[in-house]
Design a binder for these strands. Structure first.
Lengths: 168, 168
DNA sequence: AGGCGATTGATATAGTATAACATGTCGGCC
DNA sequence: GGCCGACATGTTATACTATATCAATCGCCT
């Protein structure tokens, strides 16, 4: 697709060091609360899918997620993964990163947010930033065309701090 | 995907009535000038590909473009279309609309612009709006994360004026 | 003429996503 | 209890999107 060897994003998608286990655990707890609030059923496959995304802490392709699910005794066919992922996206517990044909756990479930994704072109790390200001500008531009924005995919490609520091 | 029968976007992607032939002709002329300025070779396949996008005046899938090219005596294999489209995108003469897995001619070639796409979820019409303000907000948010934006895909999904008026 | 890079074309295959159908599970309701 | 409907899961099959690779050709420069 883009760059070639792809350094594994050990720095993690947030562009900052942190306790992954704790971070993932916190987020999962918040996601469960949010699912309950919405009356959405976080079934085993769905919950496990979300956990996989949280543990990986990066954007994953549907088939990559499927492999993990299959290895754990869930179904082996694409729809298994796509359905779980779609459910998560639909309920704001995960996001779709179109540039990478991939999915990532939402780091701020329930906070009603419009995310922007910052995607490093070198290590593929993905950070979810607050899009409120961006979204504001977007709504205004759209209004000028008589267009009513309902959803937005905002994805920026560039260099993350770590890769920039290594002088890419 | 989204809505089902898809009303053909006869209103055109600019959400406004206008003379398509003239609009396409103007844009093609500007694109040719821009290609010349860049020293980019607008060969027959490439030029025809751009014309097809301009005539259609909407986002088209690569295979849809390929069918048109094949029918006109160019190659019949996917790379033919993908290469031409990639060339156009690379030189700013067309854009890729990831949400639709499609491509659209650039309506403002040479104007060094950061486009936002306004995509109607009912009729799939695509308008290219000026993203300068949006891009500014984005750069600022990204800077807060130490992230340097190089390119951005900004795509909004919603209702175009025509479909909104028809009360969707 | 000869060489070289860019372009085009075909073959083959990889990667992403969904339609359609069958089975199972869990409620509520008679 | 037994039935029913809604939802969830799983499978089969297939559609759609995209790229790697090699061969042939073209344009241009020396």
């Amino acid at each position: 697709m883009s760059a070639d060897p792809k350094i594994p994003p050990e720095g993690g998608p947030a562009f900052a060091d942190h306790d992954h286990a704790q971070c993932a655990g916190n987020t999962l707890a918040r996601a469960e609360a949010e699912a309950a609030r919405l009356g959405a059923r976080l079934t085993p496959v769905r919950k496990r899918t979300l956990e996989i995304l949280l543990e990986a802490h990066r954007a994953m392709g549907a088939y990559e997620v499927l492999d993990r699910l299959a290895a754990e005794g869930f179904g082996h066919q694409p729809p298994v993964a796509y359905r779980a992922l779609e459910f998560l996206v639909e309920h704001g517990l995960a996001h779709r990163v179109r540039r990478l044909n991939a999915f990532a756990a939402c780091m701020h479930p329930g906070e009603d947010h419009a995310p922007v994704f910052l995607i490093c072109r070198v290590c593929d790390a993905v950070a979810e930033a607050d899009a409120a200001p961006v979204r504001g500008a977007l709504d205004q531009v759209a209004a000028g065309h008589g267009f009513a924005v309902e959803r937005a995919n905002l994805e920026a490609l560039g260099l993350c701090p770590a890769c920039a520091a290594r002088g890419e």
